[in-house]
Each structure stands twice: as structure tokens, then as C-alpha cells.
Design a protein around this nucleic acid. Structure first.
Lengths: 218, 218
DNA sequence: ACCTGAACACCGTTCAAGT
DNA sequence: ACCTGAACACCGTTCAAGT
């Protein structure tokens, strides 16, 4: 998908680089993200990128922060649990739409957008009147749920498209049945009948939110 | 740390390769794991490794499965929550002792040891008499907690050793204070006074286990 | 069946030279 | 201040040749 050669050459900026890199990773995955190819995509020399990003790692940090910027913060006026549910749903949707991002999220340092998002969650929990220890633990529980759940879910979703899922599952199941893992075989079968991951995401989130509420009032 | 040259050359096996690779990653991280260096460590030619592993990715899958094999399964006779707590604590300890493993866990296909572990957790939940939907969701919640929590925790622990943590935290905090993120600044301060991650791990696990119990009886 | 060095393809990044 | 091609260092893996 080469850029239109008649178009006047756009100035190379950090923002353009990050946006193009995110778009590329969305389609091909981060593993396929290569500096030479990215530069080509932008109609620039490879080394020009390094005038705007320090190196590839720092660039990926920037990409994660671009994604962080797409997440809706919990709304101010709402009851704290509805506000958290809405924001978590937004974060979940954003991470699902950038499938590479959840895994990077866990191992990159937070940039400005993500720091602001962290602060907004902590503010919501604090202003809900939860006890300080519950705010502290609850923050970890909630953020862990958002990215941990999404990573697990994407592991299942990330099957190559062309494959016959029936065959794949059948073969996998056959192996399990014959190797004395009946409960795992049942679980895999259950997965086949359940594609509404959004539902499970909020079911577990509610479990956590209600637990926090209960433990803070106790 | 070269191998003793007087020692008779040990036969190269898949098991020896995986063990050495795990030990290497424990010390230097997976990013530093390089086929040439690993072969050297084993006193073999680089290409000899490929007689026992298909390629580097498949080798890392094998490494994760070696780690999976170190985890204690939930014990049969115990009350289901105590059994799960003990097994989760074991998994947590194992993942902490192989700091690279949690991140790989989320993006590698499960090998035999991990499949057995998955089956054991599902069996425990099923035999506890929980409703099938609660087993299904609960399995995801528990496994998500174990690896998700550990990944987050290691992100904090993974600071380079030589650095002055006081200075680092102070500089980081300063930036936060002046950039209108008081709640995040407070949270970072709270982290400084809390190094007992094991406690928080079980606190959140209990929140989940109790929530499952309650929701299954409802 | 297992071992291995040479060679290849690929990729991040340094350098020196441009504007 | 920004751009860039050539070159270097590094690394996974193929190949062909050994035992």
C-alpha cells in the first residue's frame, strides 16, 4: 500500500511516525514492525525516523501512549461503579482494536496519556469514599483485570484466520480426551459456545467492584 | 562463566538445552537469550541446538513449560479455597523466581505441563460443586489474577539494581506533583511503604474466590 | 541419527556527509 | 535543525558436509 506519489511530501513528525506505526502494528502485529518498512511507508529514509524517536523501544513506548490516549476516563458525576464500568469497557474496546497493545502495555513504561489515565482511576476510587487500603488494592485489581483479561481473551481470538476452527478444536480436543484431561476438554468445549467476551469481562469486573465496595464498608 | 573444560562433554538433549536456557533467562532476561551464546554455554556448536528444538520460538514455548512444571497443583482433599490459595501461591512464587516467564506465559501456546495444570484447576473448581458458569468464569478470573498480578508486580520490581530508588522515586514524584496528578503521586508514595506483595496477591485472590463462592450459592 | 562451520537474509543503529 | 545512504554489528536459520 504505497503512498500516493503525487501528494506533496508531508513533513516527518513524531506524531505522524507514531500514528503510522500504530496503524501498521494493528494490521501486521508489532513483531512485523520494522524500521525500514515503516520509513518506506512514510516516504522517508530509514534514518530520518531517528530524528523524531530515540530508538525502536522508545517508539513503541510512544505507540502505547497513543493507544492510552484513546481511552475514555471515568466520568466525574456518575456513581463510582458505573463510571468505572464505562471506562473499563472503553479501555477493553481500545485494547481489542489494537491487538498488539495489551502485551506491550505490561512491559513498557507509562507515557503522559497513560499516567493521566492512572490518575483518573485513582481519583474516582478516592472520591468514591473507599478506604485508602481499598483504593490501593482496588486500583491494582481493576487495572490488572482490564489488561490481564484482554490479554487472555486475545490469546484465544488470535487464531490465524484461514484455519478451519472446527478441525483445530477437534484435533486439540482429541488430544486432550485421550490424555486424561477431561475438565480441560470440557472447558474448551464451553469456549466454543461462548463468543460474548464483553459479557464475561463485565461479569468479572463487577465481581471485583462489588468486592471492593463490600470490603470498604466492612 | 565457562563450563569446566576437563569435564567429559555431556550429550546434548532437549532437556539440557531448555534447563540451560531457563537458567540463562533467569539471570539475563529473555531478550538477552541468543542461540549462539546458549550453545557456547552448553559447549556445543550453535547449529547443534536445532537438532533438539525446532526454532527459537518453539524453544521458548518449551522453557515456559519447564517453568509450568514447577508449580504445585491444588491438593485433592483440601477445601477448594485453601487448595486454590496454596496452588496460586506456588504459581506466584515460581513466576517471581523466573521473572521473564510471566510475560511469555501470556503469548505462548501451553505445553503438556501447563495443560495438566489447567486441568487440575478446572477439576478443583468443578469438584467444589460450583455451578458450571461459575467454574467457567472463575477459571479465567483465577488464572488471570495469577499471571496478571505477577506481571504488574514485576514491572515495579524490575528496576535496575544499581539505581538509587529514593532519587528515582523523588524525581518521578516531582514530575507528577507539578503535572496535576496528585492521586497518582499518592499511590506511588503508598507503594514505597509496601513491599509485601505476597499479601496483596492473596488479598485480591480471596476477593475473587469469595466472590465465586457467593455467586455460585446465590 | 546427530553434529557443525560457513554463508545468507534481515534488522537496529552509528557515522559521516549532506541541506 | 533535519535528512539520508553506506556501513557495521548482531542474530536466526538454511545448507551442505561431515561422523
Amino acid at each position: 500500500m504505497a503512498r500516493n506519489k503525487n501528494e506533496p511530501k508531508l513533513a516527518l513528525t513524531r506524531e505522524r511516525i507514531l500514528d503510522e506505526a500504530v496503524a501498521f502494528a494493528d494490521v501486521h502485529g508489532v513483531d512485523a514492525l520494522v524500521m525500514r518498512k515503516l520509513a518506506e511507508q512514510l516516504g522517508a529514509g530509514t534514518m530520518s525516523l531517528y530524528n523524531h524517536v530515540a530508538n525502536k523501544d522508545e517508539m513503541i513506548e510512544g505507540m502505547v501512549d497513543v493507544v492510552s490516549g484513546e481511552i475514555d476516563h471515568p466520568a466525574d458525576g456518575d456513581e463510582w461503579r458505573s463510571a468505572m464500568r464505562a471506562s473499563a469497557a472503553s479501555a477493553h474496546a481500545v485494547l481489542v482494536s489494537h491487538k498488539w497493545a495489551a502485551a506491550e502495555w505490561t512491559r513498557r513504561r507509562p507515557g503522559p496519556n497513560r499516567l493521566r489515565y492512572m490518575d483518573a482511576i485513582l481519583r474516582t476510587l478516592t472520591e468514591a469514599g473507599l478506604r485508602p487500603e481499598v483504593v490501593y488494592h482496588g486500583y491494582h485489581a481493576i487495572t490488572m483485570h482490564i489488561v490481564g483479561f484482554t490479554i487472555q481473551e486475545l490469546g484465544y481470538l488470535d487464531m490465524p484466520i484461514g484455519v478451519d476452527l472446527e478441525d483445530l478444536a477437534a484435533g486439540f480436543l482429541g488430544g486432550l480426551e485421550t490424555s486424561n484431561m477431561p475438565h480441560l476438554a470440557q472447558h474448551v468445549r464451553d469456549h466454543a459456545g461462548d463468543d460474548d467476551h464483553g459479557d464475561e469481562f463485565s461479569w468479572l469486573l463487577d465481581l471485583i467492584l462489588d468486592g471492593l465496595e463490600r470490603s470498604s464498608r466492612a
